[in-house]
Design a protein around this nucleic acid. Structure first.
Lengths: 230, 230
DNA sequence: GGAAGTCTGTGAAAACCTTCACGGGAGCGG
DNA sequence: CCGCTCCCGTGAAGGTTTTCACAGACTTCC
C-alpha cells in the first residue's frame, strides 16, 4: 500500500491520450459510428421481418431511422455486398448477416455487478434479453448469502465473482456500483478475463487495451439536453 | 464551359434526412461532441473543487478525462477566454461558467413518464439530482389514484399529464414507457410544451424541430460491445 | 427477349472534428 | 525590472465521416 502514486509518468513531452475510435475488421477500418448504426439497422430489420417484408431499399431504411440513404448503403458495404441492384436488400438475409457481424446471433452471457436501484431495474429490463443478452448472475457486496433477485436471477456476494464468472463462461459485465468502488470492481472483472464492460458509473475507468468499455452516463445526457434548451 | 449535361435531375430527388448534429451559439457553430465533453469538464471541476484545487491546466484536465490538452483548450475557447496564460484555469470560476453555459446553474424540473422497472429505478437514482435535475413528478397509465412512489416522488395517472406539467413549469421529460406507447406519449409531452426528452425507449420518435431529444439505448450499447469482442 | 425503370456500390467532394505547433501574455524568482 | 518558464488561444494541417452523384447491374413487365 506504500507504493508510489501513479502520477504523471513523464513531464517532458506531450503524453496526451488521443481519442481513438474505430476498429479494424478484415483489413478495413470501421468507424465506431457505423457499429452503432448497425444495431439500429438490425432492429429495424427485426421489425420489418415481423411485418413479413421481403425486401427493403436503402432509402426506406434511411427514412425509418433518420439517416441518408447513402449512409445506409455505405455502412452496409463495409461488411459485404448484401444488396441487389434494382431490388433492394433481402430483409431476412440482411438481418441474419448483421446479427452474425454484431455477434448477437448466439446468446451472450452477462454478469451484473452492483444491485442497487439501477442494477435491480436492469435485471428486470426486458430489452437486453430481447436482443440476445442473458444476465445470468449478479453480484453485490451487501449480500450475505446467495439469494434469488429480480427476474429470478441469482445474486451472489462479490467475493464469489471470480468463481462464478468462470463457471458460466461469462464475457460481459454491466457495472452499476458506486463511484468509489468502480475502478476496483473493474480491475477484478478484467483480471477474471471479462472482455467488455457496460459502465453506468460516471467515472473514467483505467483499463487495458483489450477490454472494451462503453459508458452510459445519464446525468451527462440530461446536461447536454439542458444546453440545447437555453 | 461545355455543359453537355448540366444537371440531369433524373426525376428522383433525394429528400434524405441529413444527420444534423451541432448547434449555433452566438454566431459560432458548436459541435455536438463539444457539449458532451463540457459536462465531463464540469464534473471533473466539481471533483477538483472538492479537493480545494485553485487552478487546473488543460493538460491536467486532459489527463483526467482521456482527451488531448489541445482539445480541452479548443473546447473551452468556444465559449470565451477562461484561462490565464502561465497559470491555467481557475477551478471555481471555470466550473461556474460551465454550469451557466450548460444551464445547470439552476435546478431544472423534470417529469418521468412510465413507471415500470426502469422508470422506478430512475426515480431513486441519485445521479440526476446531484447535477441539478429534480424529478418532480411521474406518470403511468396503471395508476388509479395519485400515490407516492420511490424517493417520495408523486406518481399520477397519465391523464393528469398536461395539468401537472403546467402546474410545476416542467421543461424536461424522461421517457420510459413501452415501445407501443412511446410516440403517443411524446406527442402529448410536446403538445404540453416540453422542450427536451430523454428517451429510453428503443424507438425513433417523430418530433418537431424545436424539441430536443436524446436517446439512451441500452441494448444498442451491448450490441456494439459485442461487435468489438468478436 | 428487349426496353424501361429501379436501386446498389463506390469514387470523389464536402463537411466536420481533432491534433499540431507556435506567438505571446502572465506569473515568478532573483 | 528582467529574464525565464509556463501554458493559453488559435490558425493551419491532418484525419475522419458524411454526402453527392453516377455507372452499371438487376428486376419487371410487356
Amino acid at each position: 500500500m506504500t507504493a508510489k502514486r501513479p502520477k504523471a509518468p513523464r513531464g517532458t513531452s506531450h503524453p496526451d491520450t488521443p481519442a481513438d475510435s474505430g476498429s479494424s475488421l478484415d483489413g478495413r477500418k470501421i468507424p465506431a459510428a457505423v457499429i452503432k448504426r448497425l444495431s439500429l439497422y438490425a432492429r429495424a430489420l427485426q421489425e420489418l421481418e415481423r411485418q413479413q417484408a421481403e425486401k427493403v431499399s436503402s432509402s426506406e431504411l434511411s427514412r425509418l431511422l433518420g439517416f441518408t440513404s447513402a449512409q445506409v448503403r455505405k455502412d452496409l458495404a463495409y461488411f459485404g455486398q448484401f444488396g441487389v441492384p434494382g431490388f433492394g436488400y433481402p430483409v431476412g438475409d440482411l438481418r441474419r448477416n448483421l446479427r452474425r457481424i454484431l455477434g448477437t446471433d448466439r446468446e451472450l452471457q452477462v454478469a451484473l455487478v452492483g444491485v442497487g436501484h439501477l442494477g435491480t431495474a436492469l435485471l428486470s429490463y426486458g430489452g437486453f434479453t430481447r436482443q440476445g443478452f442473458r444476465i445470468v448472475c449478479a453480484f453485490d457486496k451487501e449480500v450475505s448469502a446467495p439469494r434469488i433477485g429480480a427476474a429470478g436471477i441469482p445474486v451472489y456476494h462479490i467475493d464469489e465473482l471470480e468463481k462464478r464468472l468462470a463457471e458460466h463462461a461469462i464475457g460481459f459485465a454491466i457495472l452499476t456500483v458506486s463511484s468509489e468502488a468502480a475502478q476496483a470492481v473493474a480491475n477484478r472483472l478484467i483480471a477474471a478475463g471479462i472482455s467488455a464492460i457496460l459502465n453506468f458509473v460516471p467515472v473514467r475507468l483505467q483499463t487495458p487495451e483489450h477490454v472494451k468499455i462503453h459508458y452510459v452516463d445519464l446525468a451527462l445526457e440530461m446536461e447536454s439536453l439542458s444546453f440545447y434548451t437555453r
